[in-house]
Measured scan of single mutants.
Amino acid sequence: MLDDRARMEAAKKEKVEQILAEFQLQEEDLKKVMRRMQKEMDRGLRLETHEEASVKMLPTYVRSTPEGSEVGDFLSLDLGGTNFRVMLVKVGEGEEGQWSVKTKHQMYSIPEDAMTGTAEMLFDYISECISDFLDKHQMKHKKLPLGFTFSFPVRHEDIDKGILLNWTKGFKASGAEGNNVVGLLRDAIKRRGDFEMDVVAMVNDTVATMISCYYEDHQCEVGMIVGTGCNACYMEEMQNVELVEGDEGRMCVNTEWGAFGDSGELDEFLLEYDRLVDESSANPGQQLYEKLIGGKYMGELVRLVLLRLVDENLLFHGEASEQLRTRGAFETRFVSQVESDTGDRKQIYNILSTLGLRPSTTDCDIVRRACESVSTRAAHMCSAGLAGVINRMRESRSEDVMRITVGVDGSVYKLHPSFKERFHASVRRLTPSCEITFIESEEGSGRGAALVSAVACKKACMLGQ
């Protein structure tokens, strides 16, 4: 009897593995994704193909990295998701002549009506938060230079001027797309009239992360975010950046690689679950690469896999709870928690219980395998993109072996128990001629924006502006 049951459990697990095998990517698959990513990057950089390229390769006008001589107080704003952060950054000489960066910050959550109302409502709310922060720190009387981390696709015309191309991540505030974001912020500050600010720089969160990590390690020339969304930036040779005049030196390019796949480059790798996630998203047909990796989508992918296993009578005796059938019910943090389970399955059992399920031991094991399959594919897909960037940098610099540091931020990278190990191992397999160091950014977005502002202020002083 026991043997029969054991055989049935083994057969069930084997069927589960057959279904989950769809998520496995072979090294040849990853090399294919990497080569296609490089081709799209090239198209994004070139003037004649930029418009139709899915990977936009947006110039950021960040050319210099901090040298350690900029000092002063800077205000930093960070808008990239449902939370908005205001930070005071003091850049100065530390002990023994070292450079020191001290920060104080406060988080504000953005109400739904500000995210989806008008641009005026959104930026009025942001300036209200700045006003509140300055009151708390008794700094209303000071006109501070301000660095703005704005983590949406922007076409820069200068370091302090950028046109919002399109909202992502659930934002829909009308009247912002096609307009200068810094102008919208300046107008809102003017409307309030109770404080003055000098907006000197606007950067993407990947750029802010790279600059913040450069402060720790001067070989950091790539910034990457794996959180709600997924994106990367890197220092490109100016001669390859056709959208900006000049051939000397390097400029940081914001790849906006989340949109890779929007022209069909990933079609052969998309599964039924991916198509369902895409169809029910706020932007169907867009940001397809990001939807395979980002935390906004990972939990939902797992939920759809679990429903398939229920329908195949391989999980929960073929019956799903009402909660499990509800879109968004299986949160991405559950994926991390399930994979963090120590082996007694308590954590998995508790999560499934909150979803109205009474799982068996085998159910718990199957749910864990589903989570591992989805998150491992995410790590491997992400590795193909980064390997594409790094191999490109090595080739354009004609280096036999390139040493490089990548600064990384984002909740999936930082909080998932195995993502970074799987990701690092896969990147290294795909970049055999590179020695890569990964560092995690601390308060990256805010500190990085302030350091970019410090560079901009120093330049302005040198130019006598």
Rank of each mutant, 00 (worst) to 15 (best):
D3K: 00
K15F: 15
K15Q: 09
V16Y: 10
E17A: 15
E17F: 15
Q18R: 10
I19F: 11
A21G: 12
F23S: 12
K32E: 03
K32C: 02
K32H: 12
M34P: 04
R36H: 06
K39V: 08
M41T: 05
G44A: 06
R46E: 15
R46L: 14
E51M: 07
S54R: 15
S54Q: 10
S54P: 12
K56L: 12
K56Q: 04
L58N: 10
Y61G: 00
Y61Q: 00
V62W: 00
S64V: 13
P66S: 07
P66T: 15
E70F: 07
E70S: 06
D73I: 00
L75C: 01
S76H: 05
S76N: 04
L77N: 06
D78K: 06
T82P: 12
N83R: 08
F84V: 10
R85D: 11
M87Y: 04
V89C: 07
V89M: 04
E93Q: 06
E93A: 09
E93W: 10
G94D: 11
E96T: 10
Q98Y: 06
Q98N: 10
S100H: 09
S100R: 05
S100T: 10
K104G: 09
K104N: 13
K104T: 08
P111I: 09
E112Y: 12
T116S: 13
G117C: 12
G117D: 13
S127C: 05
S127Y: 06
C129W: 03
S131H: 03
D132L: 05
F133L: 04
L134F: 05
L134A: 06
K136H: 06
K136I: 09
Q138A: 08
H141W: 14
K142L: 11
K143P: 00
L144W: 12
P145T: 04
G147H: 03
T149V: 14
T149F: 09
S151E: 15
S151D: 14
R155S: 15
D160I: 14
K161S: 11
I163W: 13
L164K: 15
L164S: 14
N166I: 09
N166C: 13
W167F: 14
K169N: 11
K172L: 07
A176R: 04
A176S: 01
E177C: 12
G178V: 13
V181Q: 06
G183W: 02
L184D: 15
A188V: 01
I189D: 06
R191Y: 04
R192W: 05
G193D: 07
M197H: 09
V199S: 08
T206D: 01
A208L: 01
S212I: 03
Y214L: 02
Y215F: 03
Y215V: 00
V226G: 02
V226F: 06
G227H: 01
G227M: 01
T228Q: 12
G229V: 12
C230I: 13
N231Y: 05
A232C: 05
A232W: 02
C233K: 00
M238N: 00
Q239D: 09
E242R: 01
G246Q: 02
D247P: 01
D247C: 04
D247K: 01
E248C: 08
C252M: 08
C252S: 02
G258D: 15
G261Y: 10
S263D: 10
S263Y: 09
D267S: 06
E268V: 03
E268S: 11
E268L: 05
E272M: 06
E272A: 04
R275I: 15
S280H: 15
Q286M: 12
L288I: 14
E290F: 13
G294C: 14
K296C: 13
Y297I: 14
L301T: 03
R303A: 03
L304Y: 09
V305M: 00
L309G: 00
L309S: 02
V310L: 04
E312V: 03
N313A: 09
L314P: 01
L314S: 10
L314G: 06
H317E: 15
G318Y: 06
E319W: 13
A320M: 13
E322Y: 08
E322M: 12
E322R: 08
Q323L: 10
L324H: 01
F330N: 06
E331P: 11
E331S: 13
V338K: 01
E339D: 01
S340L: 06
D341E: 03
T342S: 03
G343W: 01
Q347Y: 08
Y349L: 04
Y349M: 03
L352I: 06
L352Y: 02
S353G: 07
S353H: 01
L357K: 05
T362C: 05
D363M: 02
V367S: 04
C371L: 01
V374A: 05
S375M: 07
S375F: 03
T376F: 05
A378F: 04
A379M: 08
A384E: 00
G385K: 10
L386A: 03
V389F: 04
I390A: 10
S396N: 15
R397C: 13
R403C: 13
T405D: 01
V408W: 10
D409H: 07
G410A: 05
G410V: 09
S411C: 10
V412C: 09
Y413D: 08
L415G: 12
L415T: 09
L415H: 11
H416R: 11
P417E: 06
P417D: 13
P417C: 07
R422C: 13
S426P: 01
V427Q: 05
L430K: 05
L430Y: 08
S433H: 12
E435Q: 15
T437I: 00
I439V: 06
S441M: 07
G444E: 10
G444D: 07
S445E: 14
G446Y: 14
G446C: 11
R447F: 13
R447M: 12
V452R: 06
V452C: 11
S453I: 13
A454S: 11
V455I: 14
K458H: 15
A460S: 10
A460Y: 13
